[in-house]
Design a binder for these strands. Structure first.
Lengths: 206, 206
DNA sequence: CGCACCCCTAAGCGCTTGCTCAGGAGGCGG
DNA sequence: CCGCCTCCTGAGCAAGCGCTTAGGGGTGCG
């Protein structure tokens, strides 16, 4: 699946068409240069429109970031919750969560970069809303690890610290992953799943 | 040791005094807001000077970032090389490297944030120079892991991937670490050292 | 056809940005 | 006292910023 197909799928429910084109253009630009170094003229230009067209669909440049951040965070949270609530042993569910979470960060690394590294540019209220989503993200991973500890499958002296480390490890994939590199998103997900199982002292590897 | 003492120690060899004040002001500002969102007026203001004073000591705003990035990368590389070339088993040396690398990222998290997350704002030539330093950083960690594998102490199927993951984990400390939080830099370093030993499949924990 | 509606553009406003430049304050050798 | 050197400031320039406004063209409905 090409990047184009990914994008239209990821933002499929954004209408009208021009608003979606502006959103995906903003994702690209923010990921490449960062929010503050991106101009509204650049975004509009990538979408094939004049700078003024942006303000018909979005009130400010910050609103674009907020929309992107919201969609991305809800998607990431959904992935982790689905893994947490799935069937299988805690080890299987943790591996599944990491595999899919990492895979998303690699496959959609442009979106993920904006989602994970540009939240500081959000306005105060929007920032607070996003931070709440991030707490839920943390909670989902912690739940799985606590299940594993309770079942006696994991050996984790510091649950909160280890949760933080696991999430940090996965998130940082968005920073270094390069689509032209030799690792596929699936391979990175597999590697990371096995590393994380080791981090929680899980007896058997999967 | 307070943040002030840390700063004067870290940048002790920058002279004259005004140039050092501007550098530390730039570190603070870049870490808080990011390079592009920081104005030269803000930097000069924090250093207690007029905007024009900045250009007596530095040719551009980018040169400030370059200087900070250079000092930071050389410091980080030094920490890892010292651990690599030290005495002890590969496990001891890897744990030492992670402990001190993470500790530095936590203690100097303002500097580290600039060093690790703002390199995209560097000019082309400066960027290439810094990327070379980062390759050396990767090499130092890989050396230790390869030693452990050769000695039969580590079980690492994918050395390059695991090296990448270990460094990524440590670097990301700069992003989330909060000086007001309940974990001290030393505690985080200790936790991360034990997690990394598990990642490399090291038989005994230290 | 007439007209309202939506989507878009050309032009530009007010402001901030990185950076420059002429000149002033203070120390120091003669 | 002078003249020089170092370090710094006040004022400001050209360019680029986010965003606004007045108006044009296409489409669908009566």
């Amino acid at each position: 699946m090409g990047a184009q197909a990914q994008r239209t799928e990821e933002w499929a429910d954004v209408t009208p068409d021009a608003a979606r084109r502006l959103l995906t253009a903003a994702v690209e630009a923010f990921a490449e240069r960062g929010y503050h170094a991106t101009t509204t003229r650049d975004i509009a230009g990538r979408a094939g429109m004049s700078p003024a067209a942006l303000y018909i669909h979005y009130r400010t440049k910050e609103e674009l970031l907020y929309r992107i951040s919201g969609v991305g965070h809800r998607l990431a949270l959904g992935i982790l919750r689905q893994a947490r609530d799935g069937a299988g042993t805690p080890a299987e569910r943790l591996a599944d969560a990491v595999r899919r979470f990492v895979r998303w960060h690699a496959e959609h690394h442009t979106t993920a970069r904006v989602v994970q590294y540009e939240l500081g540019a959000l306005g105060e209220e929007h920032y607070a809303e996003i931070v709440a989503l991030r707490r839920d993200t943390d909670g989902a991973v912690r739940d799985i690890i606590e299940d594993g500890v309770a079942a006696g499958d994991f050996d984790v002296p510091d649950v909160r610290g280890t949760t933080l480390a696991v999430l940090s490890l996965c998130i940082d994939v968005a920073r270094w992953f390069n689509a032209d590199g030799k690792r596929t998103p699936g391979e990175v997900g597999e590697l990371y799943a096995s590393l994380v199982l080791r981090m929680v002292g899980c007896a058997e590897d999967s």
